[in-house]
C-alpha cells in the first residue's frame, strides 16, 4: 500500500542529480499556496512555479492572467478589483497542480470526491458548494476545468467570461 507524501516532504532534498536542481530552484520561498482566494501577486508565484509564460489582460470587471505552460497547457487566473483571484481555469494534456491552483479549496475538492460507497461511476471531479464551485472534465491527454469562489465573483461576471476553459 502507498502513503500520500506528507507536506513536510516538499522540500526534501532529492538524491543525485536532483539535488543541484533543487538547490538552484529553492531561492524563492514557497511558504504559502497561491491561486484561488489569494492576492493577485500570487499569480506571479504560480507563473514561476509552473515555468510558464504569462500575459495579463484588464477587463471591465476583472483581470485575466493567462499562463502558458511548457507542454502547451494554459492556466488562467481571474482577479477581481480587490486584487483577489476569484476564479481559475485550466486546459492541457495533464491536470496542473490543483493543490497550488485551488489553495485551501483543494482539501474541499478531495473531500467532496471520496468514495461514498455503493455503485460508482468514473465521473470527473467536481465541487458544488455555495462558497466553491469546481467543474472538470476530459481524458488523459486533454484535461480541462474551472474553479471559482461565488462570493468573491464580481457582479456582471458570467460563466461566459470564464470562457471555454
Amino acid at each position: 500500500m502507498q502513503a500520500e507524501a506528507p507536506e513536510t516532504r516538499r522540500h526534501r532534498p532529492l538524491a543525485g542529480l536532483g539535488l543541484a536542481i533543487t538547490l538552484a530552484f529553492s531561492v524563492t520561498p514557497c511558504s504559502s499556496w497561491a491561486g484561488l482566494g489569494q492576492p493577485f501577486e500570487s499569480v506571479k508565484t504560480d507563473r514561476a512555479r509552473m515555468s510558464a509564460r504569462m500575459a495579463s489582460i484588464a477587463m471591465a470587471t476583472h483581470t485575466v492572467s493567462a499562463l502558458t505552460l511548457a507542454n502547451g497547457g494554459v492556466v488562467k487566473e481571474f482577479s477581481n478589483r480587490s486584487g483577489m483571484v476569484f476564479a481559475v481555469s485550466w486546459r492541457g494534456p495533464g491536470r496542473p497542480d490543483l493543490q497550488q491552483l485551488l489553495g485551501g479549496g483543494f482539501d474541499t475538492l478531495q473531500a467532496d470526491n471520496v468514495d461514498r460507497g455503493g455503485r460508482r461511476m468514473r465521473a470527473p471531479l467536481k465541487v458544488d458548494r455555495s462558497d466553491l464551485v469546481v467543474h472538470t472534465g476530459g481524458h488523459p491527454g486533454a484535461f480541462w476545468g474551472v474553479a471559482y469562489l461565488p462570493q468573491q465573483t464580481p457582479s456582471g461576471f458570467s460563466g461566459a467570461d470564464l470562457g471555454s476553459p
Binding site: A5, R10, R12, L14, A24, T28, R49, S56, I57, A58
Partner: peptide, 20 residues
C-alpha cells in the same frame, strides 16, 4: 468595447514540490 491592456511579467524561478 472594453479596454484591453497587455502586461508582460518578468521571469522568476522557483520550485516547490518535486517531489488484489
Amino acid at each position: 468595447m472594453k479596454v484591453w491592456a497587455l502586461a508582460a511579467m518578468l521571469v522568476m524561478l522557483a520550485a516547490c514540490g518535486g517531489g488484489g
